[in-house]
Structures are given as structure tokens and as C-alpha cells.
Simulated assay, not measured.
Amino acid sequence: MARKSPGALRAQSRLAGRSGGKTSPIDGLSSRANAAIVRLQLRHPKIGSVATALTSYRRAIWRSGRWLELLGDCPCPSCDPVGQRGILEGAMRRLPPAARRELRRVVDALDEEFLRKTLPDPRAAELNAWDAQAWWRHRLRGR
């Protein structure tokens, strides 16, 4: 019976590992940062897809007009910018410093727009401990 060579087996396993994740690279990040994100998602699958979260967060912020429209109105989690921002924060906490800086730079620009399109919640001090940990949960829609 014919056997595969060790080099063929290594190549096959590398290709299987690449196609298994099916993650698209994030625009604005280096290949090293994208690789760090893929490794993070493999080690911590509960985090979710960072690329999908960033795309959804970006879409929710830029699609809305003067005020952020999709805080609590849409039942699907992909339209909720607060949930997507939480996924991004979880990823940024676990990434290595260089990749964290790159992702933070991309997210900071979106955060500025998020802050501009929302208002501070005057009842934020009354929130439970989980809500109080994240500033993006202390915001209200403009209307």
C-alpha cells in the first residue's frame, strides 16, 4: 500500500488548518495582527468572530443617520452594536500588545462615531455590575 510522504502530510495538515477557520482578513490590520486574531479565535472560541463583530459594528454605526438607530430595536445580535463592541473588547483584552494596538486603532475611530451618535445614560450608576463594566453599555439612542 502506498503511503504519503511526511512533507505531503504536513502540507495537507497546514491546508486543513487554513480552511478550517474560514476567517477573512480584517482591513486595516497587518498580516501579523490578523494571524494573532485567528490564533485567539482558535484558542477561545467563545469570543466569536472578531472580523464579523467589527464588520457588524462598523455597519451599524455608519448605516445610521444622525443618531444610532439600532440599540435595542433589532432582535438579531448582528445588528446590535453594543453586543458587537463587547466581542471586540473581549478580543482586545486577550490579544498580544502589537495586535491589540492595531485593532484598538481601528475600533477607536468607530468608538468616536458611536459616542457622537449616542447620549450618556443618566441612570448608568444604577446598572448592575456587568453593565457597569463597559462604557458602551452606558449610552442611549439620541431619539
Rank of each mutant, 00 (worst) to 15 (best):
C76T: 10
R43E: 15
L103H: 06
A36Y: 12
G48T: 05
D80G: 01
R85Y: 04
S5Q: 09
A134F: 15
E89T: 15
P77F: 02
W135L: 08
P81T: 04
A129G: 04
E89S: 14
D73I: 06
K46E: 15
R39W: 07
S5H: 10
Y57S: 01
R66N: 09
P25Q: 12
G20R: 09
E126A: 14
T23F: 14
A109E: 11
A2M: 13
R66F: 05
L88K: 00
R100D: 02
I37N: 04
M1Y: 11
S64Q: 02
A51Y: 02
T52N: 12
R104P: 01
A129F: 05
L95T: 05
L54E: 03
G65I: 04
V82P: 00
G48W: 03
G72T: 09
W136C: 01
E102Y: 06
L140C: 09
G72R: 04
V106C: 08
A33R: 08
V106D: 02
A124L: 02
L140K: 14
H138Q: 15
P45F: 00
K22R: 09
P96C: 03
A8P: 00
R94L: 15
V107G: 02
W136T: 05
S31N: 11
G48Q: 06
L42H: 14
P45T: 04
I61P: 05
R63M: 11
H44P: 00
G7V: 09
G86H: 12
R93S: 09
Q84E: 14
R18S: 08
R32M: 01
Q84N: 15
A53F: 04
S31H: 10
P77I: 07
V107T: 13
L95A: 10
G17T: 03
A8D: 06
S64D: 13
I37G: 03
P45E: 09
A35Q: 15
A16L: 13
Q12H: 08
S49P: 03
L71N: 03
M92F: 04
S64T: 13
P96K: 10
L95M: 06
C76N: 05
L71M: 15
I61Y: 07
R137H: 08
N34H: 08
G142P: 08
R59K: 14
D121P: 03
G65K: 13
R137Y: 01
E89G: 09
R10K: 12
S31Q: 12
L140R: 14
V50Q: 06
G142W: 11
R43Q: 15
R58T: 08
A33Q: 06
R104Y: 07
A8I: 00
P120T: 04
L103M: 07
Y57T: 01
H138M: 10
L127W: 05
A134S: 13
E113W: 07
P6W: 01
R58Q: 08
T52P: 00
G48H: 00
A53V: 02
A8F: 00
D80Y: 03
C76F: 06
A36I: 08
P97S: 11
A53I: 02
F114C: 02
P97N: 02
K46C: 05
F114R: 02
S5V: 03
L115H: 05
D111M: 06
S19Y: 09
R63Q: 15
V38E: 10
L40P: 01
